[in-house]
Design a protein around this nucleic acid. Structure first.
Lengths: 114, 114
DNA sequence: CTGCATCCAATTCGATACTG
DNA sequence: CAGTATCGAATTGGATGCAG
């Protein structure tokens, strides 16, 4: 029983890190924390991401309900990306990770001095 | 100025996700949250990880000061892996991620029912 | 502006076998 | 017990060009 739970624990962590891990997914979610954005704004914000990769990651996040995609029927070629309700709930966690990474860099730098 | 800060924000998130992201690093850190472990215990706990990959990831975490490695000189073939002080500070964040992933799964299942 | 198609390089990860 | 060596499959992600 405990064994099963332990394994599930790891699997959940792996799931989470697949959802927001990788080179770009966390950064995309971070970028959308500030405000909804269009494709070109994301591309600019996340430079040097390519449109191929940005498209792919946005589709992934959409399929996993972390973002909403508003494809305006009125104005063609205008698509707005926003956090889904559930997607926005991971924002604070990602920001904690960011703070942790900043602290980590300081620690590593200090260590290199010695 | 603000542009620079925004880009740095993304880079920090990317840094964090490189440190604990990927298939195994987060799971290893989670496993060490419970208690210090030896190589074989980690391998068992993280099954089906291979020793090749486990070795590589442990070396990475060691180099980045997230874990301590106690290579006992007395008893050969006995190595104990523990969180470093800084490494343990990411434990709570990872557990939040785990909880978030669990909630995510529930949401996805509910969505599939409709 | 928002993407898709093609091609390709690099990396990651696993299987398997072996060592002191 | 704690790894290392070798090989290969699969995935990821970048470059570039094109399309509606």
């Amino acid at each position: 029983m405990q064994d099963i739970e332990k394994h599930l624990l790891h699997r959940d962590v792996q799931d989470a890190l697949e959802l927001i891990g990788g080179r770009w997914r966390g950064a995309i979610m971070t970028s959308l924390c500030g405000s909804p954005k269009r494709f070109s704004e994301l591309k600019e914000d996340l430079k040097p991401i390519t449109s191929r990769v940005l498209t792919k990651e946005l589709r992934y996040l959409e399929q996993n309900k972390l973002i909403n995609v508003e494809r305006s029927t009125a104005a063609a070629n205008s698509v707005l990306y926003t956090h889904s309700e559930h997607g926005s709930s991971c924002g604070p966690i990602i920001l904690q990770l960011r703070d942790w990474a900043i602290k980590h860099r300081e620690i590593m730098l200090e260590y290199l001095k010695e």
